[in-house]
Amino acid sequence: MAKLHIVNKSPFERSSLDSCLSKSTEGSTILLIEDAVVGALKGTVVADKLTAAIANKNVCVLGSDLNTRGFTEAEILDGIKTVDYAGFVDLVAEHSNVQSWL
């Protein structure tokens, strides 16, 4: 059963996104929320890692947390899906196993 991974810390400050990327398996879903949403931006030092993850994992970002920080869907990497709170709930409901990387 594919897992839902939730990351909420900035990848420029903490290693939780790295840990998550290294331990999440093919077909799993990674949702970036709170300070982690900036990891989805284009042209950053973590963009290559995220692009690699998109190839075989489902990467999502919480849109309202992105807007809060001054960014829009147009500024994130291609292949990352934007979800709203309802989408967040759906993801949790669809996955029997949810892991939060604190």
Binding site: F12, G63, S64, T68, R69, G70
Partner: peptide, 18 residues
Amino acid sequence: DDGVFQITDNQKTDGSGM
């Protein structure tokens, strides 16, 4: 560091309620 995000333009918090 991440402090630069404090002064990004167009911050819109309606959706997050912050």
